[in-house]
């Protein structure tokens, strides 16, 4: 590989290198090339989807790999004018927000107990939650549908939110516990001397101080819910919810089956469904990565 040889030669003998970038670095252009290639491969298919959304179907099938000729905004206009699409955006937003709020609230309360109370069974409680990392949805999806059916939650947004909260709890608690642990004991003593109860300490001091950790778990829960497919498939679709009540991933799939003849229309729908995730989640990249690291490492 040329990249490595070029780099090996450059900083080696000539001069003791200090920091990359301080002098002319022959590796630099190679690095740009590699990084650009990786970025192009990553973004290429996504760009293709967006651009092909501007094509007509006959044009698409004449040359599937070509550029739009002519460009048309019809597909995008049609999707954006489709109330079902907006209802699905709403469904995704409401269920993702519900999941996020639920997970943050239940998670921080439980993590507070694990982090700041000494009691018998604390270790067990913590182990109980961490084991949950090994219980992914795939395993319990069948009984879960049976359970939701009996609770009359099948086919409803609640039936989606509550299990999502439950399944996000392990990660949340693993991330939050060290955060809450790190709050100095003096703060708590001071609060207690001022006459606050433990609960008061929790509300007035712990919650604000754990905001960065809460944001991280919130972002993770939101992304997880926004992109979820398996649970909505079983809870909403199998539960008989109308397609307007589907979340976006499910809605995209439904659209691609129902209007599959319209390939560029499907591509436009897919592109618009991708857009919110790309806009918001790439901005939250640091939190997502930090969160994933934290989820495993603690």
């Amino acid at each position: 590989m040329t990249a490595t040889t070029a780099i090996t030669v450059a900083p080696g003998k000539a001069r003791p290198s200090r920091r990359a970038g301080q002098r002319f670095d022959w590796g630099q252009p190679v690095v740009y090339l590699v990084a650009l290639a990786v970025a192009a491969i990553a973004v290429g298919p996504v760009l293709y989807v967006f651009i092909s959304g501007f094509r007509t179907n006959p044009d698409f099938f004449t040359d599937p790999a070509g550029m739009p000729n002519p460009w048309t905004t019809d597909n995008y206009a049609r999707v954006l004018g489709d109330p079902t699409f907006w209802r699905q955006v709403l469904a995704s937003t409401v269920t993702a927000l519900g999941t996020t709020i639920g997970v943050m609230l239940l998670g921080v309360m439980a993590a507070f107990v694990i982090a700041r109370y000494e009691f018998k069974g604390r270790g067990l409680l913590y182990a109980l939650f961490t084991t949950g990392l090994l219980f992914p949805l795939t395993i319990s999806i069948l009984p879960l549908t049976v359970l939701l059916r009996q609770l009359d939650l099948f086919g409803t947004w609640w039936g989606l939110i509550i299990p999502q909260v439950a399944f996000a709890l392990p990660t949340t608690i693993i991330i939050l516990v060290p955060f809450l642990r790190a709050i100095p004991g003096e703060l708590e003593e001071a609060a207690l001397i001022d006459g606050a109860s433990r609960i008061g300490f929790f509300w007035r001091i712990v919650l604000p101080l754990s905001m960065p950790g809460l944001m991280t778990v919130g972002v993770l829960a939101f992304v997880g819910s926004w992109n979820a497919y398996l649970l909505p498939l079983f809870v909403l679709q199998a539960g008989g919810a109308a397609s307007e009540d589907y979340t976006l991933p499910l809605g995209v799939q439904f659209y691609s089956t129902a209007y599959g003849q319209d390939t560029t229309g499907v591509l436009a729908y897919t592109a618009l469904a991708m857009l919110p995730a790309i806009l918001f989640f790439t901005l939250a990249e640091k939190r997502i990565v930090g969160g994933l690291q934290g989820a495993v490492k603690g």
Binding site: A3, I7, R19, A20, G21, D25, G27, Q28, V30, V31, Y32, V34, A35, L36, V38, A39, A42, V43, P45, V46, V223, W226, N227, A228, Y229, L248, P249, L250, V252, Q253, T270, A273, M274, A277, I278, F281, T282, L283, E285, I288
Partner: peptide
């Protein structure tokens, strides 16, 4: 290779991260 001062490093990172944030369905 990328662990150095690069212009547009933030942008490159964001672009590389794009596939991950997409739902598996789309």
């Amino acid at each position: 290779l990328m662990n150095r001062r690069l212009r547009f490093r933030g942008l490159l990172r964001a672009l590389i991260f794009v596939p991950y944030v997409l739902s598996e369905v789309t």
